[in-house]
Lab assay of single mutants.
Amino acid sequence: MLDDRARMEAAKKEKVEQILAEFQLQEEDLKKVMRRMQKEMDRGLRLETHEEASVKMLPTYVRSTPEGSEVGDFLSLDLGGTNFRVMLVKVGEGEEGQWSVKTKHQMYSIPEDAMTGTAEMLFDYISECISDFLDKHQMKHKKLPLGFTFSFPVRHEDIDKGILLNWTKGFKASGAEGNNVVGLLRDAIKRRGDFEMDVVAMVNDTVATMISCYYEDHQCEVGMIVGTGCNACYMEEMQNVELVEGDEGRMCVNTEWGAFGDSGELDEFLLEYDRLVDESSANPGQQLYEKLIGGKYMGELVRLVLLRLVDENLLFHGEASEQLRTRGAFETRFVSQVESDTGDRKQIYNILSTLGLRPSTTDCDIVRRACESVSTRAAHMCSAGLAGVINRMRESRSEDVMRITVGVDGSVYKLHPSFKERFHASVRRLTPSCEITFIESEEGSGRGAALVSAVACKKACMLGQ
């Protein structure tokens, strides 16, 4: 009897593995994704193909990295998701002549009506938060230079001027797309009239992360975010950046690689679950690469896999709870928690219980395998993109072996128990001629924006502006 049951459990697990095998990517698959990513990057950089390229390769006008001589107080704003952060950054000489960066910050959550109302409502709310922060720190009387981390696709015309191309991540505030974001912020500050600010720089969160990590390690020339969304930036040779005049030196390019796949480059790798996630998203047909990796989508992918296993009578005796059938019910943090389970399955059992399920031991094991399959594919897909960037940098610099540091931020990278190990191992397999160091950014977005502002202020002083 026991043997029969054991055989049935083994057969069930084997069927589960057959279904989950769809998520496995072979090294040849990853090399294919990497080569296609490089081709799209090239198209994004070139003037004649930029418009139709899915990977936009947006110039950021960040050319210099901090040298350690900029000092002063800077205000930093960070808008990239449902939370908005205001930070005071003091850049100065530390002990023994070292450079020191001290920060104080406060988080504000953005109400739904500000995210989806008008641009005026959104930026009025942001300036209200700045006003509140300055009151708390008794700094209303000071006109501070301000660095703005704005983590949406922007076409820069200068370091302090950028046109919002399109909202992502659930934002829909009308009247912002096609307009200068810094102008919208300046107008809102003017409307309030109770404080003055000098907006000197606007950067993407990947750029802010790279600059913040450069402060720790001067070989950091790539910034990457794996959180709600997924994106990367890197220092490109100016001669390859056709959208900006000049051939000397390097400029940081914001790849906006989340949109890779929007022209069909990933079609052969998309599964039924991916198509369902895409169809029910706020932007169907867009940001397809990001939807395979980002935390906004990972939990939902797992939920759809679990429903398939229920329908195949391989999980929960073929019956799903009402909660499990509800879109968004299986949160991405559950994926991390399930994979963090120590082996007694308590954590998995508790999560499934909150979803109205009474799982068996085998159910718990199957749910864990589903989570591992989805998150491992995410790590491997992400590795193909980064390997594409790094191999490109090595080739354009004609280096036999390139040493490089990548600064990384984002909740999936930082909080998932195995993502970074799987990701690092896969990147290294795909970049055999590179020695890569990964560092995690601390308060990256805010500190990085302030350091970019410090560079901009120093330049302005040198130019006598």
Rank of each mutant, 00 (worst) to 15 (best):
E28W: 05
S383H: 02
C434P: 08
V71T: 11
K458G: 15
A6W: 12
Q26F: 11
E331A: 13
V89R: 05
S353T: 08
R397A: 07
K190T: 15
S418Y: 11
T209I: 06
S340I: 12
F152N: 04
G295T: 07
L271P: 06
S281G: 11
K169P: 02
E440I: 14
C461K: 13
D113P: 12
L185I: 05
L144I: 05
M210Y: 02
R327C: 10
S383V: 05
D341M: 14
N391C: 08
T342H: 06
T431K: 02
E339V: 10
K102E: 11
E52Y: 10
G227E: 05
G162W: 01
R85M: 02
G117V: 05
S280M: 02
D194A: 14
T361P: 13
D274Y: 00
S212V: 03
G464K: 09
T149I: 02
I404S: 07
K39Q: 10
V338W: 05
E331W: 01
C220H: 00
C457P: 15
R377W: 01
R377L: 03
V374T: 04
A454T: 05
D205Y: 00
M381F: 11
L271A: 09
D73G: 06
F419G: 07
S321R: 13
E399H: 11
L315V: 11
R345G: 11
R5I: 10
A282D: 15
D278A: 11
G285M: 13
L315F: 11
T116R: 06
E40M: 07
V406I: 12
A456T: 15
R250E: 14
T60F: 01
F150I: 06
A370S: 12
F152K: 02
A208W: 05
N166D: 03
T326F: 13
V427G: 06
I439D: 10
E339W: 04
S76H: 03
E51S: 14
G464P: 12
V367I: 08
V71Q: 15
Y273G: 10
K90C: 13
K169G: 02
L315R: 02
D311I: 15
E40F: 02
V412A: 04
G178P: 00
F334Y: 07
Q26Y: 11
L77R: 01
L292A: 14
F152G: 03
D205P: 00
D262N: 08
E9L: 11
V182E: 02
E120Y: 09
I351W: 07
V199K: 01
Y273S: 15
G246N: 04
S212H: 06
D73A: 05
R7S: 08
E268Y: 07
R192H: 15
K39Y: 05
K414Q: 11
E28P: 14
Q286I: 07
L184I: 12
G294T: 03
A384E: 02
S69Q: 02
V200R: 06
E256L: 01
R191Q: 01
L415Q: 11
F171A: 01
G407I: 07
E112T: 11
L301D: 04
Y215M: 15
T60Y: 01
G162V: 02
T405M: 09
L79C: 08
